[in-house]
Amino acid sequence: DVAEQPAPAPLDGPTEESLQLVSQLKDCLSSCAVDVSTVWWEAAGSRELCVVTACESSVSLWKPLASDCWGKAHTWQLGEVPVIQLVPLPDTCSLVCIALGELEITEIRLLLCSSEDDSFRQSLVKTGTIEAVLGLKDRRLVSSSRALQEQQVEVVWLSETGGSKDRQTLMPPEETVLAFAEVEGMRDALVGTTAVNSVVVWNLKTGQLLRKMHVGYSYPASVCHRAYSDSGLLFVVLSHPHAKESKSYGNPAFRLVAFNPKTARSMGVMFSSLPPGHAGRQGDVTDTSAAAVLTSGAIAVWDLLLGRCTALLPPGPAGGWALARWATATATACLLAGRRDGTVCLYRY
């Protein structure tokens, strides 16, 4: 039996020691980095792990050069609608997915290089008032969108050429879905978190809404990041961007919660809180590690199974950090830390 653990005090002054700077890249033309990600890219028969940086009006692909340097291979110029975020597509090569919009997402596009004539192209996948989007394994994309009073939750199968091969509608819950997470190891299971603090579970094959389970009002607007099933329980990593500070738990950032899908009962397993004196966070999770940008301009890294803050990257002389993303599809954990001026630092964790 495991009870929810209050987070131990962070290590005695966690520093960047557990983060090793590998390389950094700087987009001289950019002054407005909005997101950063990694993608496997195939060219001339070889496959390389590349970095993707997004500004409001363009997205750039960076290929590895000798001695930990990066060279810009291509920049896609976008239209008038600004880029809001990059949408990683797990297990996918030579395909970049982006979400565009003003305050909310209104377009999802794919960026690619045509195999026919080696020309870099972009294609439109979806338009609408889109609340949440997530790339799934096997070149699938799930999104929730609103039209009038109706909510649509849809899975799109993407083709290698940047089109959509097929679409399936999932049964929507009554409340708005704000985030999705694949259930690892279960190809047909998907979870989502809603605007009224529920975790919902779908069967992706049939489109059925299987269960709605309440998270609790202490954690408003919880966001799911990762989910896996073990021993008949569904474990979900949630972040709590708006949770209130409490005496026993401090300022909660991430929780690992075990749900019994059969009874819809839940139990907190592990709890990670912000370092003392810090507030605000925008987080990203990979495996058992979480990272978040704090309002102080620092980046905090947690071990979610220990519930402990393991590293703190302070804001540098060039200014505070603005982005923290885990690189996808790398053998070892790699953190991408970005500043608004377009500088991206790669840290091995």
């Binding site: 495991v2 069967n203 059925q208 008949g232 329980l233 749900f259 019994n260």
Partner: peptide, 23 residues
């Protein structure tokens, strides 16, 4: 986590809920 806290646990929860849920 124990059954006393979370209720009866089933290893086949996904298949069982799929069989019960409206399609």
């Amino acid at each position: 986590c124990s059954e006393s806290d979370l209720g009866p646990i089933s290893l086949n929860w996904f298949e069982e809920l799929s069989a019960e849920a409206p399609s």
